[in-house]
Amino acid sequence: MTFTLKIWRQNGPADKGRLVTYQVRDISPSMSFIEMLDVVNQQLTLKGEEPLAFEYDCREGICGSCSLVIDGVPHGPDRGTVCQLYMRRFPDGATITIEPWRAKAFPIIKDLVVDRSAFDRIMQAGGYISVNTGGAVDGNVLLIGKDQAETAMDAASCISCGACVAACKNASAMLFVAAKVSHLALLPQGQPERTKRAKAMVAAMDREGFGSCGNQYECEAVCPKSISVRFIAKLNREFLRATIEEPSPLAEQPADPHDESH
């Protein structure tokens, strides 16, 4: 197969960036999209041009590294990750445009690589259950119904790729935050910090410069793990619940149990 590729090249954060056209030949239909780009890079290297920068690691749809907007759609025409997209999905001779995730909160590092550390900072703001290692009770002490565990697992399947942000006109991270908040809010272990977590993570999301949710659901449509927008509704409820349930004055400033000064 033969393709005309229009690929975003940008030499660094300060560079303006542009689409550059490349031709590729002898592409087999059972090649993955990333293997096809490997071929492009091989050609560029042998011609003495700098290869394209783009991210991948697991190549099996689970690490969330790969992140390309293909013909305007994050991860391309199938509802999966780029690394799981195969060239048989494209008509021979097609022109394919390849761009990075675009969002204020995801600045471009080089070519097709963006900085998604904003997601890590949202997680650091409260995306955890603060239990120490050691001393956990037996796992069967907490009975969790199968359906409940499955729903938590649905939310927990998020791979933090950021396609939801890239697809949203407002570059909102609501689906990501909703998945993370819901996962823990659905489990008994997550209850003690439920209120605090929802508030802290939403605040962090705003701080990072993600836009607000316009209820258009483009996020769900591109999510490679089919995370449902119902979790956004759940996040909204969690957030509302958190704002209504102000902590009682006595516990306004809960002491850090690790602070050794008391």
Binding site: T133, N140, L142, L143, K146, Q148, G190
Partner: peptide, 19 residues
């Protein structure tokens, strides 16, 4: 296993709620 459960790992469960 206990530690992971405490951290919120959603292990598969039986209908009765056990791991």
């Amino acid at each position: 296993i206990d530690q992971c459960v405490a951290l919120g790992v959603p292990f598969a469960r039986e209908y009765g709620g056990q791991l």
